[in-house]
Design a protein around this nucleic acid. Structure first.
Length: 566
RNA sequence: CGGGGCGUAGCGCAGUUGGCAGCGCGCUUGGUUCGGGACCAAGAGGUCGGCAGUUCAAGUCUGCCCGCCCCGACCA
């Protein structure tokens, strides 16, 4: 490709609004162009990179036994009513009506469609296991698109679905795909960690996410370096510092004027937060919930949401707390009625806690569960924190950051039962098909590669997905010998089967070198009067500083050699 | 949806008390340069997000609307 003809100019400046490194670089390098919030066009170079990511994925999915197919974007909403997932997806589902007022949606994922196909096409255990996948555009009306391609409303996803006769087969498939995912990410030069995850709106029992590790990541991962326990913060468990034991003492009222927060109250009474109970109020599907946790802990809202089985969860305002007859800042779980109380296990570790008295400027000392109050539900709803013990081995946990580039789920049978996907086993009995599903966000993966491997000069593509392998840079093209040599090198490199971006623009050396670094192709070849004097061309790898001269004679095959080694 | 911010040339931005719409980059033409974002000269390019209002006069003041970004709840 000749740079002079390429759509997608490099930009020196981009809006201050784009503050994520990958977003800035993709805009500056002319890879993408924004159409609307969370909706982007891929310009030619960006599209090449995306297609390369797809082909790496495709190779590994095929190797894992996948059969590629293509399902429609447009789906009848009836399928979603049938699966019961229309509500959990809620506003995220883009819906529309056709001319006959039939309600359709733009597929946010394809479990319904694929299960419907399998329900009709697969009847026997002989047809299983079955692995189907596609690379397709998905639509999700995300409340907040973010960070360029990191979270968008229209995106390419590789989605695979597996169908099994029994749990053992599902388990085998699950780990086969997991290993394929690890190969994909490592082929793109990413260091990823497979972590336990919450299964969210997709549903199902077990699930893991693949996190591309790096400071720029927006997800938190909790991990143990001793036993390799790793989980998304949403899901992570931990062994908390135990509370102090003690014989329950009589409850005592104590005046705490103006002391509302845990730190204020604990400090005022000469205690640590661990000796207090924290009351937090949420509105779960419109209903007030009193959440109680030990003062040194924080609520994990995903765990809470799962415990309450609600679709919508938010913190409540003070007015809503007062309306329930409680005093914000001094609310007490003791002696109240008509409010659902749920608690974290941590309140049972320790004794004689300080809690609110449900009176202004007053707290209670020596509050003990279950002597002084009851709760409706008790579970682990606490955030894991660094330094706390690993749930498996007790070693101190650490927290890392990462970008979620893949997510796999063991769905089990809940969808196949609802969608009528069953098979006849050897004994002739009809049983629901056991399912798994596996997703990779292709565009996000592309952005993650840039996000995690760029330097201050620009993108650094791994050879596996670089839009072009070689950036051919011709300096002083007005000189006939430079022009002729550059054209010859361009042809020879292509004849070797290399993909070449030929910078044939009338630009100064600085501009070309800077654009070469920005665009980040693995290898730069420079032809100039200076190199021609020595009958050579200069070669430089993007990720290295050093340059070297290679003779023009046999240049193309040497370049190919360097690229296969690097 | 809650909080914060921004919409002015293709891109990045300035525009004071309301008084001729500007700067840098990019683009076009000509010339000089040439190994890390060169220089000179001459040009082209605008519904100041939209609608309404106040005013002799609105980019600037008021109201409503739309769009975009960032922080939260959500996710590949």
């Amino acid at each position: 490709m000749r740079f002079s003809q390429l759509l997608g100019k490099t930009l020196r400046q981009v809006s201050a609004e784009a503050d994520t490194p990958s977003h800035q670089l993709m805009l500056r390098a002319g890879l993408i162009y924004q159409v609307a919030a969370g909706i982007y066009s891929y310009l030619p170079t960006g599209w090449r990179a995306l297609r390369k990511v797809e082909s790496v994925i495709r190779e590994e999915m095929d190797r894992a036994g996948g059969q590629e197919l293509m399902m429609p974007v447009l789906q009848p909403c009836e399928l979603w009513d049938q699966s019961g997932r229309r509500r959990p997806f809620g506003q995220t589902l883009f819906t529309l009506k056709d001319r006959r007022e039939r309600v359709l949606c733009l597929g946010p994922t394809h479990e319904e469609v694929v299960t419907d196909i399998v329900a009709h096409q697969v009847k026997s255990y002989r047809d299983l296991p079955l692995y189907l996948y596609q690379i397709q555009v998905k639509f999700r009306d995300e409340p907040r698109p973010r960070g360029g391609l990191l979270r968008v409303r229209e995106f390419h996803m590789k989605d695979m679905y597996s169908f099994h006769t029994d749990e053992a087969s599902l388990d085998e498939g699950y780990w086969t795909v997991a290993r394929a995912y690890e190969r994909i990410f490592s082929r793109l030069g990413l260091s990823t960690l497979m972590v336990e995850a919450d299964s969210g709106a997709i549903g199902g029992k077990a699930s893991h996410e693949f996190m591309a590790l790096g400071e720029a990541g927006e997800d938190e991962v909790v991990r143990c370096e001793q036993c390799n326990y790793a989980a998304n913060m949403e899901k992570a468990e931990s062994r908390k510092t135990p509370g102090e034991k003690g014989e329950p003492l009589p409850v005592e009222e104590v005046s705490t004027p103006g002391k509302k927060s845990i730190d204020e109250v604990a400090g005022f009474l000469g205690l640590t937060p661990r000796h207090t109970l924290k009351a937090i109020f949420y509105i779960a599907d419109g209903k007030l919930v009193f959440v109680l946790i030990r003062g040194d802990q924080e609520v994990n809202e995903v765990k809470l949401k799962n415990l309450l089985r609600c679709a919508e969860l938010r913190l409540s305002g003070d007015e809503e707390i007062r309306a329930a007859g409680l005093v914000p800042g001094f609310a007490s779980p003791a002696g109240i009625k008509g409010v659902t109380i749920v608690a974290d296990h941590s309140i049972t570790s320790g004794a004689n806690f300080v809690a609110g008295a449900n009176k202004p400027d007053t707290h209670l000392k020596n509050v003990n569960y279950p002597r002084d109050f009851q709760v409706e539900k008790m579970a682990d709803i606490a955030r894991a924190r660094p330094g706390e013990g690993c749930p498996k081995c007790g070693h101190p946990l650490t927290i890392a950051r990462g970008i979620e580039v893949g997510h796999i789920f063991k769905l089990g049978t809940f969808l196949s039962e609802k969608m009528g996907a069953s098979f006849l086993d050897k004994a002739g009995a009809s049983r629901p098909i056991i399912m798994g599903c596996y997703g990779i966000g292709v565009g996000r993966l592309l952005a993650a590669v840039i996000e995690l491997t760029h330097d201050d000069r620009g993108i650094i593509w791994p050879a596996s997905i670089a839009p072009y392998q070689v950036y051919l840079c011709a300096l002083m093209m007005e000189k006939a010998d430079v022009l002729a040599t550059a054209e010859k090198v361009y042809n020879e490199l292509q004849a070797e089967g290399l993909e070449v971006l030929f910078d044939d623009r009338q630009e100064s050396p600085g501009v070309k070198f800077n654009d070469a670094d920005l665009l980040g192709m693995p290898l730069r070849v420079t032809v100039s009067p200076r190199t021609l004097e020595k009958g050579s061309a200069e070669v430089k790898l993007r990720q290295q500083k050093e340059t070297r001269l290679l003779p023009l004679d046999g240049l193309a095959s040497q370049v190919k050699q360097i690229l296969t080694v690097a």
